[in-house]
Design a protein around this nucleic acid. Structure first.
Length: 953
DNA sequence: GTGTGGCA
DNA sequence: TGCCACAC
């Protein structure tokens, strides 16, 4: 029955090992969100799926197997030790894909075959020999020319890379002989990739000619003396034995001992859940969608990525079993302990000391670290064990109706917990012990909270910063996301513990057991993440970025956030009411002009008024079918003399200033310090830039006169000055350096006006007496270049037709061909690696760089061009910031660094030290790239001193 | 190009 | 959620 079945149909044998290498080099280096490389795996899966589809369609397949090499050493090494000795070890990012490809094969319910000591080719040859005896057809799926010797007599090859069938004509074309003589040709010609020696001076062409003339290798060697060409004759005689050895190497062994009969290779349908689970786990979205639609699976139904959790082996107090119904349990064997007495606390501190590494997490009453009160601390010194130490819990707030409990109506008491100061006194030596590494997730927050309790955590590692350094641009770096990604575990959500929105309660009110489940799990997860992420720093060569930039910056930012900046509240209030009055006036005017009282703040209504009712020209409809009313459109209309759009622009400016700045800022003043304390997000921008939130002090207006009034509300303490120091043209300078543009670098060294120079180069006008509008255009082009420029973007910026913008760009590239070369280089690098690098080695991953959609790909390419420039500038100012506190202290200056605005630092200094501070700050900033990277352009810094930010700038 | 935030 | 506007 086996024979008949096999004979009736076709046996497909996939050369798995050969395919892996070819897919690896042919495809872009795709990675899973957790960093696992999967490019070859995806290629393999696509190939397999396509094969299954194609063969199903023609109904020809009956048996299917993937064959793999096993072990590097085979019987061929006994014949010739140098066989394949020239092969380099598999690339680092290919190695983990081997086992994934075996998993993939299983997931597709395809049989895989390997035999210790044999290459895949030999196994295939053995099956081919057996198939021939029973008259079955075989299709070998491979691009490996070594398998061509098997073709013919019911055997064909299918090249999956080229999607091409290889049969007799193709073999004849490749080797010049029929398949049964391919081995003879190869043994003469040798093969440099497999280190098969052959005979010197003989290639495939000559070998084929000789074999066709003499019949086979042995006949040729026997009659070698007859050969006319002296060199060829001598070599064939001298290297006859080498040719025979080569023949043994290239001839495939058809006698591999295989238990598998053909009946073991019958095709089977994959289990939908298993296959979809595998594809989902590896992020193969397109393939998953295809398989799902075929299986009729609902789009959301994902087999859980997390391994099934075992039952809790240790039912001690506070064990991890979450009280909720369906959320994933804690990492399977974790045990959490509630610490309520000093004895237990001492044991945990001793455990941390013994381990030398401890994950730490603090629970507080607020997300705002400057207002947060400490509620508890969790620790994990050993994987799977964590504790929660409640310190500031209060009795849970009464929930709704009180049940009559028979009499005791006294206030519920606070739960049992160690006295906060006593616990901190015990914890402090451990948290500050230089021999114990503390690990946190976004530890900047904990540092900021604990510094108000007199505790300074050091030394430390931060899993968020590790993740950011390793995977910026690939995914977010919050703990929940990292846990799901790296640990296949979904931690208890904060909102499930404390609620959310209006019903949110303070963590201090969460019952201890519930708080322990949540808090201890965070420490547990943090330690596990640390164990996953930290080793990657070295293997991925990112330790320097993390250790010299990200980690040391955190305490510097803590000091800046703690310092805050003083706001003149009165000035802000006055500004606010001034704006309010004028907004109302504009509104009246606008309604009068429109002849209708509509909501000026609604772009939808505005668009209808302008274009539908008033019938103005130049309207564009956006994607949602609504009229576009952005500033560009309104400015154009205003320039044509229409008054309504002009007033709307005025209205918008003030409305924005009022709502976003004057009003919001006042609510952000900390009542205890009287200052505004922004929070700098370290892991927000993929380029390495910081972001500022609550409030965002990196987008305080400066462009317009009205906006600048706001900056004047940022003031220095009495007797102090604000100092603003900003890098001049840092991104253009870095472009000149990175792209290595001689003329640009020279211009910066000579201190020329770079925009005027660009204008004169691109438009061919002399710098002397240049029209300011010409220089302005050049400036826009320079910015556009940094942003990766598109004709569309530049046209938008300059308000000129796209054609004209295109001409400008062409003219620019004509003058600076090196910049186009840089852009092409960078895109190419990113297409291949999926990331780009800054001057200091920071990696910025760019998603969608290989997207098939040209618009999306173009967007990613512009990001790839911009990231090394923006990111290098971010690195440089971070380096300056890290050095700044020490430099100030060494110079005996009392100045404090308060803010960073991408290329600008704001300081507050005693009036008498303002000049000295400005000079020192300038020097530190200008030298910030040194000594690690000597730039080929100078960095220059402009510093200003004033009583307020507007004045200092 | 990179962000945050307010509003409908 | 998308639009708009502010910063570098």
């Amino acid at each position: 029955m086996i024979a008949t079945d096999a004979a009736r149909h076709r046996i497909y044998l996939v050369d798995g090992s050969g395919y892996i290498f070819r897919a690896y080099y042919a495809l872009p280096p795709l990675t899973r969100p957790d960093g696992t490389p999967v490019g070859a795996v995806l290629g393999f899966c696509n190939m397999l799926q396509k094969l299954i589809d194609d063969t199903k369609v023609d109904g020809s397949v009956s048996h299917l197997a993937v064959v793999f090499d096993s072990a590097r050493k085979t019987f061929r090494n006994d014949i010739y030790p140098e066989y394949k000795a020239n092969r380099e070890a598999a690339p680092e990012d290919l190695v983990p894909q081997f086992s994934l490809i075996r998993d993939a094969t299983r997931a597709f319910s395809v049989h895989s075959i390997e035999r210790e000591g044999y290459e895949a080719d030999d196994i295939i040859a053995t099956f081919v020999a057996r198939a021939r005896t029973i008259g079955a057809e075989v299709v070998i799926v491979s691009s490996d020319k070594d398998l061509m010797q098997l073709v013919g007599d019911g055997v064909t090859m299918l090249d999956p890379m080229k999607n091409r069938i290889v049969d007799l004509p193709e073999v004849l074309e490749k080797f010049g002989v029929a398949p049964d003589r391919v081995v003879d040709v190869q043994s003469l010609a040798g093969d440099s990739t497999d280190n098969v020696p052959g005979v010197p001076g003989i290639g495939i062409k000559t070998a084929a000619q000789l074999i066709n003339e003499y019949g086979d290798l042995e006949s040729l060697l026997a009659r070698a003396a007859e050969i006319k060409q002296p060199k060829r004759r001598e070599n064939l005689i001298a290297f006859a034995e080498q040719a025979r050895i080569s023949r043994q190497l290239v001839a495939l062994a058809a006698d591999v001992p295989l238990e598998e009969g053909f009946d073991g290779l019958l095709v089977a349908d994959p289990d939908p859940a298993t296959l979809e689970g595998f594809l989902a786990e590896n992020g193969f979205k397109a393939l998953l969608a295809k398989v799902r639609s075929r299986n009729g699976s609902p789009a959301g139904a994902l087999p859980a990525a997390a391994p099934p959790a075992g039952s809790d082996p240790d039912p001690v107090a506070g064990a991890a079993a979450p009280s909720g119904g369906d959320e994933a349990p804690a990492p399977s064997d974790s045990v959490y302990e509630l610490v309520q007495d000093t004895g237990a606390l001492r044991r945990w501190i001793a455990a941390a000391s013994k381990a030398g590494v401890v994950a730490v997490d603090t629970e507080t009453t607020s997300l705002d670290a400057m207002r947060a009160e400490l509620v508890g601390v969790s620790l994990s010194a050993e994987t799977g064990r964590a504790c929660y130490i409640p310190l500031g819990h209060v009795a849970p707030a009464p929930t709704g109706e009180l049940a009559f409990d028979g009499g005791d109506s006294s206030m519920p008491e606070a739960p049992k917990q160690i006295d906060r100061d006593e616990a901190l006194a015990l914890l402090k030596p451990m948290l500050e012990d230089p021999a114990i590494l503390k690990v946190g997730q976004n530890l900047k927050y904990d540092l900021l909270v604990l510094r108000r309790y007199g505790v300074d955590i050091r030394p430390f590692d931060d899993t968020m910063l590790l993740s950011f350094t390793l995977d910026a641009g690939r995914h977010g770096h919050g703990m929940d996301e990292l846990s799901e990604l790296h640990l296949a575990h979904k931690p208890i959500a904060f909102k499930d513990v404390a609620g959310s929105g209006k019903a949110m309660k303070s963590f201090a009110e969460v019952p201890l057991e519930r708080a322990c489940d949540y808090a201890a799990e965070d420490a547990d997860v943090t330690l596990r993440l640390f164990q996953v992420l930290k080793p990657r720093l070295a293997t991925e060569h990112l330790a320097t970025v993390y250790e010299t930039i990200e980690r040391p910056l955190a305490p510097v930012l803590v000091a800046m956030e703690a310092a805050g900046i003083k706001i003149d509240s009165g000035q802000l209030t006055a500004l606010s009411s001034d704006f309010a009055g004028r907004i109302a006036e504009y509104e009246k005017e606008i309604h009068a002009l429109a002849g209708d009282a509509f909501n000026v703040g609604s772009p939808k209504q505005l668009g209808e008024i302008l274009f539908d009712r008033m019938g103005l020209e130049g309207g564009k409809k956006g994607r949602n079918g609504a009229w576009s009313t952005d500033a560009n459109v309104l400015e154009k209309l205003a320039a044509e003399g229409h008054e309504l759009p002009a007033r709307v622009l005025d209205w918008r400016q003030l409305a924005k200033l009022k709502s976003t700045y004057t009003d919001a800022l006042q609510n952000q003043i900390n009542p205890q310090t009287g200052r505004v304390h922004t929070s700098f997000a370290m892991a927000a921008a993929a380029t390495g830039r910081l972001a500022s939130t609550d409030p965002n002090l990196q987008n305080i207006p400066v462009r317009t006169a009205e906006g600048r009034k706001l900056r004047r509300a940022f003031i220095a303490e009495p007797g102090h000055k604000l100092i603003s120091a900003d890098y001049s043209q840092i991104e253009l300078r870095l472009l000149a350096h990175i792209a290595d543009i001689g003329s640009l670098k020279a211009a910066f060294r000579d201190g020329l006006d770079i925009h005027a120079m660009t204008a004169s180069q691109v438009f061919g006008v002399p710098i002397e007496g240049m029209d300011p509008s010409v220089r302005r255009s050049a400036k826009a082009i320079n910015f556009g270049i940094i942003y990766g420029i598109s004709a569309f973007g530049l046209a938008q910026q300059l308000g000129v037709p796209q054609r004209q913008a295109r001409d400008y760009i062409d003219a620019y590239f004509e003058k600076y061909p090196g910049i186009r070369a840089y852009m092409d280089r960078t895109k190419e690098f990113c297409h291949h690696h999926g990331y780009v690098e800054t001057v200091f080695g920071r990696r910025c991953h760019i998603g969608g760089i290989n997207d098939r959609n040209p618009a999306r790909r173009g967007f990613s390419e512009r990001a790839a061009i911009n990231a090394p420039i923006q990111g290098s500038a971010a690195d440089i100012i971070k380096r300056a910031m890290i050095r700044m506190p020490e430099a100030l202290a060494a110079a005996g200056l009392k100045a404090r660094m308060l803010l960073q605005v991408h290329d600008e630092l704001i300081f507050e200094a005693p009036e008498a030290e303002a000049e000295a501070t400005a000079a020192l700050v300038t020097s530190v900033m200008e030298k910030a790239a040194l000594p690690a990277r000597a730039l080929s352009v100078p960095l220059t810094v402009d510093a200003g001193i004033g009583d307020n930010w507007g004045e200092a700038h």
